[in-house]
Design a protein around this nucleic acid. Sequence first.
DNA 1: CTCAGTGCAAACGATTTGCAGGGCC
DNA 2: GGCCCTGCAAATCGTTTGCACTGAG
Lengths: 132, 132
Amino acid sequence: MEGLDKNMRLTNQRQVILEELRKVTSHPTASEVYDMVRKRLPRIGLGTVYRNLELLSDCGIIKKLEVGGEQKRFDGEPAPHYHIRCVTCGKVADVDIELLSEVESAAAKTSGFDVLSHHIQFSGICSGCKKT
Amino acid sequence: MEGLDKNMRLTNQRQVILEELRKVTSHPTASEVYDMVRKRLPRIGLGTVYRNLELLSDCGIIKKLEVGGEQKRFDGEPAPHYHIRCVTCGKVADVDIELLSEVESAAAKTSGFDVLSHHIQFSGICSGCKKT
DNA sequence: CTCAGTGCAAACGATTTGCAGGGCC
DNA sequence: GGCCCTGCAAATCGTTTGCACTGAG
């Protein structure tokens, strides 16, 4: 789960993408990462960003989020934690409550699946959107 | 949350889509619904299916699922319940465990959001895929 | 040197939308 | 008769991919 695969090279693009992603807590989409990275590497291609985000998430170095909405989002923190999305502005934030690992065995019992993981996705209204 | 909007007409297409969706427990994608409905209404358009699924889910009559994967899925059962997806074959099943409503207040406290709802998404391996 | 990685642009798949005709209320 | 709804096709949007070139090891 940690470190690059043996054949993976540590390119400048890869490194900058990872650095930029770790700088923020905003769970950016691929094209938001593209914009962030382009400030440092103006000639990078969007395809490269997609390829590297995919690769880094396959290695478990970052996490791909499948929170609602059209675009996938990426999280520089690979440790499991929950998320909340603002139904008004679409912002995604971390929810730092303890993990409910015990629900997995209950889910396994009723579903008949081997349960590998779970994720809780909250929806709500963020403090910024509450005021208006 | 229940019933059609005042200006919504109960067209045959709309009715057949709803009936077909309620017939199955497979959480079909839009194009799977399209295939099911086309057996009864061969001239229906894919756009009509998308429009009606969207409309029915806006009324709360069906539910749109944002479980991982590329395509959205639809559920004829609008009451809240959890889902599990097979990482091997992509099948989505219901998980009938009790709702953990109490996590919402904990999430509200740490995130600062007004929490409106939550959903738990499990990943695992279904009984069919275990055997192979 | 070699081969994984890159930039670019074209291709793709899911979903949305514009439009002109059709049919429910 | 009005207007929502439909079928159809083209458009859009996020993402992926083919290709020839580049650069890390």
